[in-house]
């Protein structure tokens, strides 16, 4: 009997140690938690209204969720799924990024043309920065000195000095910028433009445009090729770019800025995240309501996992 209970405990701990992908379902007001061993949804957690952006604290002890229509950033205990408290976030928070200090959230307030900086410890608003119309894409440089907000209708990347919380540059990009990432140790900033159909690469030191990445999917009209979310592989050698209603991912060589491959995934692919060793990639497919698992090495879609309605954000959670 004693032996048995040890065994049971062991079994329990193995099931508990499977890594997870957390997916926000924009129209279900839930999070689907995908177990990466079984590749099934093991938990469905309730959130505020219209959850979109999702990110874990550095030690994964809490998860932050943009509940856009509840006008709140919610803080959840990932073990219990319980909402611990809300952070003041400004109206309609859509997307955010956690500063490397693990303490400050930079939040895009889509309806208000504002970027809100929140201290997650004191739960107070540290600063609000006026940016362009419909801010969405958010990024912070690895050294924490620069934060970026992109604005969808103003078509700009706004460069924020995190020390003064003031804008120091505004650079035009193509129509409807959606997502921003610092790449190659923060020497480059990449911004995707949904309607423009491009990714603009900036040299961070000078804020000058360095390259423009273009996409062409066979059999899909250029108008439907709409880059949105993207993530970089280990060592920033390649980028996987979601192309929205083109229903494909593009694999971009980050040195030559050339597209090497296109991978068919679900409908209106939005955002994505990797597993622990970045060998698998999980994309949210907004219209088909599922998540596609892509093998990074072979660049093949391997499995589709049904989640809630209009999955939007994705975040990886290691459990060991």
């Amino acid at each position: 009997m004693k032996k048995l209970s040890v065994l049971a405990a062991l079994l329990l701990s193995t099931t508990a140690t499977a890594d997870e992908i957390w997916v926000t379902n924009e129209k279900d007001d839930t999070i689907s938690v995908i177990d990466l061993e079984t590749l099934e949804v093991t938990r469905t957690l309730e959130t505020g209204e219209r959850p979109r952006g999702i990110t874990f604290s550095k030690d994964y002890s809490v998860v932050y969720i943009c509940a856009s229509d509840s006008d709140a950033v919610q803080v959840m205990d990932p073990n219990t799924g319980e909402i611990l408290h809300d952070l003041p976030s400004g109206e309609d928070p859509e997307q955010f990024v956690l500063h490397p200090d693990d303490r400050h959230l930079y939040i895009a307030n889509e309806d208000d043309a504002i970027t809100t900086v929140v201290d997650t410890q004191s739960r107070t608003v540290v600063a609000q920065i006026d940016v362009g119309i419909e801010p969405e894409g958010m990024a912070v440089s690895p050294d924490g000195k620069i934060a970026i907000t992109t604005s969808e209708t103003t078509n700009m990347a706004h460069w924020i000095d995190t020390e003064t919380q003031k804008l120091f540059a505004n650079t035009l990009v193509d129509s409807r910028p959606r997502h921003a990432e610092f790449v190659k140790d923060g020497s480059e900033l990449w911004v995707s433009s949904e309607i423009g159909g491009t990714i603009t690469v900036f040299d961070v030191a000078t804020q000058a445009e360095k390259a423009k990445i273009e996409f062409k999917v066979k059999g899909v009209h250029p108008d439907r090729v709409q880059p949105v979310g993207f993530e970089l592989t280990q060592g920033d050698t390649h980028a996987f770019v979601a192309l929205g209603p083109a229903n494909h991912l593009a694999v971009v060589n980050a040195d030559t800025y050339e597209v090497e491959d296109y991978i068919l995934v679900g409908r209106r692919v939005w955002h994505m995240d990797f597993n622990a060793d970045r060998s698998k990639l999980f994309t949210t497919n907004g219209v088909s309501g599922d998540v596609t698992m892509v093998d990074v090495a072979s660049r093949k879609a391997e499995k589709t996992i049904k989640v809630g309605r209009f999955p939007w954000g994705a975040a990886f959670r290691p459990t060991n």
Partner: peptide, 11 residues
Amino acid sequence: LEDNTTTGRFL
């Protein structure tokens, strides 16, 4: 006009 003005402020 509001949309244009916001962009215009930066330029």
